[in-house]
Amino acid sequence: MAESESDNWIKEAILAYESQLLRYALHFVRDPNQARDIVQDTFLQLCRNSKPELQERMPQWLYTVCRNRAIDVIRKESRVKQMPEIENQGAALEPAAQAPLPCQAIEASEAASGLMEQIATLPDRQQEVLRLKFHGGLSYKEIAEIMELTSTNVGFILHTAISKLRQQMVQPS
């Protein structure tokens, strides 16, 4: 029984954080295959840990490991960050099973593509905080732990990013 639980909690973690971590890793390496490798390494490290140690801080642990691994990859390869097309990234990756309706997808993609482009113009740190907050659903404290910042700093970065996006969203209209 305990074995099956141990087996399940890792599977559950993989299912729950796979996509988020892939997007998060993609933010660093800009290469879907490298992002997959990073997330794979992250989960492999998860397998080497016990559930009681990570039970209460699973998200920040996963994001922290993923972030460190991504930074290692960047340092190792001394990659120069390039900004590929967001759509291309999505096309290169396998879509999820549950896709939205076509009309919703069109509207959402139009709005999202514009806003995502604006997000892509933000500094890396602001992008990362936005992703951790809105995509990862993490709190300031968890984000601060992952990025090795203070909660106040996280709030300020997030506020600055949202303010910039608000201005950019207002200007076209």
Partner: peptide, 29 residues
Amino acid sequence: IANVFETESSLQLAPEQRTKLLAEAESVS
């Protein structure tokens, strides 16, 4: 912003990676 992130296409690991991970998870137990 939250909607934009939510509408991002969900990404998945490659099948072989997922298989390896699940096997590793099973071996842990």
